[in-house]
């Protein structure tokens, strides 16, 4: 443990908070009703209400903030900049980093990078790399920093990170083949649940995170765990690609909207980027 940063005791436990009676009944409430309506009122194949905003961080070349109700993720893109290592590379490199805010999970996370964050960062790279035109950026590096502010579902955190990073890259004006939209799903009692919350995830027998480029019809990443038949896997992939297409249209609209807003702002200021029509 880093004593310079954490002046607390070495071990700590979460206080036990007694639940009020009505809360208690909610706690044991089933995950869904008989007609497949989940606790937050959506059906099994629906994603949570999403909120997406590009360009929220002033210092970054591109940025995005995404929210799937309880899951909140911010992403900033810096670069392209010159690669520090002297070895020549004909292709640019994409440096991805995912960080959980210490207060983002139920248990406090250490401010130091843990193995899970390292692995998620690597998965984020693998999901974005097929879309970014790194061949156009020799000797350069693009930095993608993701901070998870609130975690409501580990699968949805990764999915939201991928989606946000893709929007942030576009916002930074980095050339890409297509936008990458990502979606998570869980298997609970032989049914496929799209975009699960943390509580639903705890009851899951397996999970899937899929990232997909809609216009190109290519899957950029897939991560599945849990025992399931081959046909079941294929069915889940199909459902996830459908959900990804929905997220993809949200991403497109948000980006268009932000560009329009930028242009309007430039017009009113009489900026150099003034465009006719």
């Amino acid at each position: 443990m880093d004593r310079r940063r954490i002046p607390g005791p070495e071990a700590s436990v979460k206080p036990i908070i007694e639940r009020a009676d009505d809360e208690d009944t909610q706690h044991v409430a089933p995950l869904k009703t008989i007609d497949d309506i989940r606790q937050d009122g959506r059906s099994l194949d629906k994603i949570r209400k999403a909120w997406l905003a590009p360009g929220i961080i002033t210092q970054a070349n591109g940025s995005a903030y995404i929210e799937f109700q309880g899951t909140k993720v911010a992403c900033a893109v810096y670069g392209p900049r010159a690669t520090k290592i002297s070895a020549f590379s004909g292709k640019g490199s994409l440096n991805c980093e995912i960080k959980f805010a210490p207060f983002s999970c139920q248990k406090r996370r250490s401010p130091q990078r843990d193995p899970q964050e390292k692995e998620l960062s690597h998965l984020l790279f693998e999901a974005l790399a097929p879309a970014v035109r790194l061949d156009l950026l020799p000797k350069s590096t693009i930095d993608v920093f993701v901070t998870i502010l609130q975690n409501d579902g580990n699968g949805s955190c990764l999915a939201a990170s991928i989606t946000a990073a893709s929007v942030a890259l576009a916002d930074a004006g980095i050339e890409m083949l297509d936008q990458v939209a990502a979606c998570s799903a869980c298997y609970i009692d032989d049914e496929i649940w799209i975009d699960c919350t943390l509580r639903e995830e705890e009851h899951a027998q397996g999970s899937l995170v899929l990232s997909y480029m809609s216009s190109l019809n290519e899957i950029t990443h897939m991560l599945q765990s849990g025992e399931i038949s081959v046909s079941g896997t294929i069915r889940t992939i199909e459902q996830c690609t459908e959900a990804c297409s929905k997220i993809y249209s949200i991403m497109g609209n948000c980006l268009l909207e932000s560009v329009r807003r930028k242009l309007e702002k430039d017009n009113t200021l009489g900026g150099l980027n003034k465009k006719e029509g």
Binding site: I219, M222, L223, Q224, G226, I234, T241
Partner: peptide, 28 residues
């Protein structure tokens, strides 16, 4: 895969992408 032929995990690696129909074929 386990001995019953059930899928127990899938993970894509590398920096390329895969078309959905090829992905299904690969899993099979």
């Amino acid at each position: 895969v386990n001995k019953n032929g059930k899928i127990c995990g899938v993970q894509k690696g590398g920096s390329g992408s895969i078309e959905p129909s090829l992905l299904n074929e690969m899993i099979q």
